[in-house]
Amino acid sequence: MSLFSKIVIGVIIYLVFLLVYLPANWLVSIAPLSNNVAISGAEGTLWQGQASLVTIDQRQIEQVSWQLSPWGLLVGKADIDFKIGNRATPVSGKGSISWSFSGLRANNIRFDLPDSFLLAGARLPFKTQIDGDVSLMVEILEQGKPWCEQLSGKLFLNNTNVKNQYGVYPLGNISLGLSCLDGQLKIATDETQNVLGLTGSAILGESNLVKVSAKIKPTDAQPKDLREALSFLGRQDSQGYYPINYQGVVPGL
């Protein structure tokens, strides 16, 4: 073997080792992060590492770890398994994400987080305050236009309490099904998945246009303030339901 061949092989081996052991803290230091994003305590490598804290605006996510498969990159995909926090942290989650030129795909995603994390100090209309927790479970998500090609999952609103200048509304637990309808994101519930007597769906389409088609009827489990306010929705139908219909852009979306 010639000296030139040995040098070439040595350079290739060096580059492979350099790529394999790319330090996560160095990558974070050169990453073009937005001004509202900060990552601290990064350890490990590009392929397997962790960060002690990720801050996005006023939101903080602790103990973020990841594994990136190098084999997927050979066929133009980035396959990432991630884990966030644990039972002792406010926010926890895990799952698998795959990104390619055809878009994003996610499998077996789960997030558990408090409402305060989602709202992050936002000022809601009518001096509204919301307490509770959210659990998101996604079996499969495939990106499409405008939002999705495929989606199957559940969204749980746990121990939800709403308070505003009009009253107090302990809404309890609400289960919502997540699906994809002609590329649009669909969220649906019925009376078996909540104690509010609520049945219907909301569809998020292009340009953040939301269409709500639902109905609600008085039940003994409803908060008193909510039950007394139902008449403002309109007239009851023959089955005792009040209509809830809306079409437009949700402010802030």
Rank of each mutant, 00 (worst) to 15 (best):
M137A: 13
D79P: 02
S102F: 09
L230G: 08
P114L: 09
F82R: 02
L230A: 09
A78H: 07
S116M: 05
R87D: 00
G85W: 02
D81F: 07
I130K: 05
I187S: 05
K217W: 03
S98H: 05
R123G: 05
V28H: 02
G10F: 10
N108M: 10
F111K: 10
P23I: 13
D131H: 13
I174V: 13
L53R: 14
E206W: 08
F126G: 06
R235M: 15
Y21Q: 12
G200A: 04
Q236V: 07
A38W: 15
C148Q: 03
L157F: 10
Q67C: 10
L253H: 06
G132P: 01
A120K: 11
G49F: 06
S69M: 10
A221S: 01
S52H: 13
S92N: 05
I174L: 12
I61G: 07
V212Y: 08
I109N: 07
S5P: 02
D131K: 14
G95S: 05
S231P: 06
S207D: 07
G172I: 05
Y242S: 09
L157G: 04
L53M: 14
G144I: 08
V54C: 06
K94L: 12
A88L: 04
S116F: 07
I30E: 05
P32S: 14
V54N: 01
P170Y: 01
G41W: 01
L124Q: 11
K217T: 00
K6V: 05
